[in-house]
Simulated scan of single mutants.
Amino acid sequence: MREHFDTLIQTVTRQIAGRPLDHTLQAWLNAGYGAHSDWYQEMTAACIQGIADGWMCKHEAQGLKYGRVTKPSEASHGFSVDVVSMQDIRGPHHRHPNGEIDLIMPLTPGARFDGSDAGWKVYGPDSAHYPTVSNGAAHVLYLLPDGKIEFTAQQQ
């Protein structure tokens, strides 16, 4: 199952490596690998199974299950891969020095991540947010260029 997950990730990362993290990339990802696609259905199933098998989302704190699945490498085209499982919660504030690409996989119909439905959401370099899931539960997969993320001391 892990090998299938890696193959699915590499299908996307090889095509987006070096591209600007912006609305154009978000539209491209949603058109080719969005919630309507077979790829999305396979990735959602792989994440659900990976969490059930215990190799994904191994850590838990403050109501969040999370974990880094892949460190940035040549195989991942320079992206790290993290998966977080959230339900009606606001996560810790953080900054994306190189941007962040999120795949939103609602588990509850109508669940939203930072106000977005199922599919992709792209944050550009130097962006920051409190990652928030509302209206139920969702898994969120994060692609981070060079694995860079900075947790900040913003007040909740």
Rank of each mutant, 00 (worst) to 15 (best):
R90E: 15
R95S: 12
G119K: 08
H93L: 04
S116A: 14
L143R: 09
I104D: 08
Q87G: 01
D117K: 09
S116R: 15
D114H: 09
A111C: 01
R90T: 15
D88F: 00
S116E: 14
P92R: 13
H94F: 07
V140R: 08
H139L: 15
H94I: 06
F113S: 03
R112I: 09
Y123V: 03
A111K: 03
N98T: 13
G115M: 01
L141D: 07
R90Y: 10
V122T: 03
A111P: 03
V133H: 01
M105N: 11
P131A: 05
I101K: 05
W120N: 00
P92G: 12
Y123F: 15
I104P: 11
A137G: 12
D126R: 08
L103W: 10
G115V: 10
P106T: 07
P131D: 03
M86L: 13
V122H: 06
G110S: 03
S127Y: 00
S127Q: 06
F113M: 03
G99L: 02
Q87T: 12
R112S: 11
D88P: 02
A137P: 02
Y142R: 12
P106Y: 00
P109R: 03
V140Q: 03
V84Q: 08
G124V: 04
D88H: 06
Y123Q: 06
A137T: 06
P97F: 12
P109Y: 01
H129V: 05
F113N: 05
G99V: 04
V83C: 09
A138H: 07
G99A: 02
S127P: 00
H96V: 09
P131Y: 03
L107T: 10
D82N: 11
H129K: 04
Y130V: 04
P109V: 01
N98F: 13
D114L: 11
D117V: 06
L143C: 06
G99I: 04
L141R: 02
I89L: 15
P97Y: 11
A128R: 11
W120I: 04
S85A: 11
P109S: 05
S134V: 15
Q87R: 11
V84E: 10
H94L: 10
L107I: 11
L143A: 08
N98Y: 14
D126W: 00
K121R: 15
P125E: 05
I101F: 05
R90H: 13
P97G: 05
T108V: 02
Q87D: 04
D102S: 15
K121W: 11
D114T: 00
V122Y: 02
T132Y: 03
H94M: 10
M105F: 12
D114S: 08
N135H: 15
G124S: 09
G99Q: 01
D117R: 08
L143D: 03
E100D: 14
L144H: 13
I104T: 13
V122R: 01
P97N: 10
A111F: 07
I101R: 06
G115E: 08
R95W: 05
D126I: 01
P125N: 05
Y142G: 11
P125L: 06
F113A: 05
A128N: 05
D102Q: 14
S116M: 11
F113Y: 15
L103I: 14
R90C: 14
G119H: 00
I89Y: 10
P106L: 06
G99D: 07
H129W: 05
A111D: 11
P106S: 02
L143F: 14
E100T: 08
P97E: 07
Y142P: 02
R112F: 00
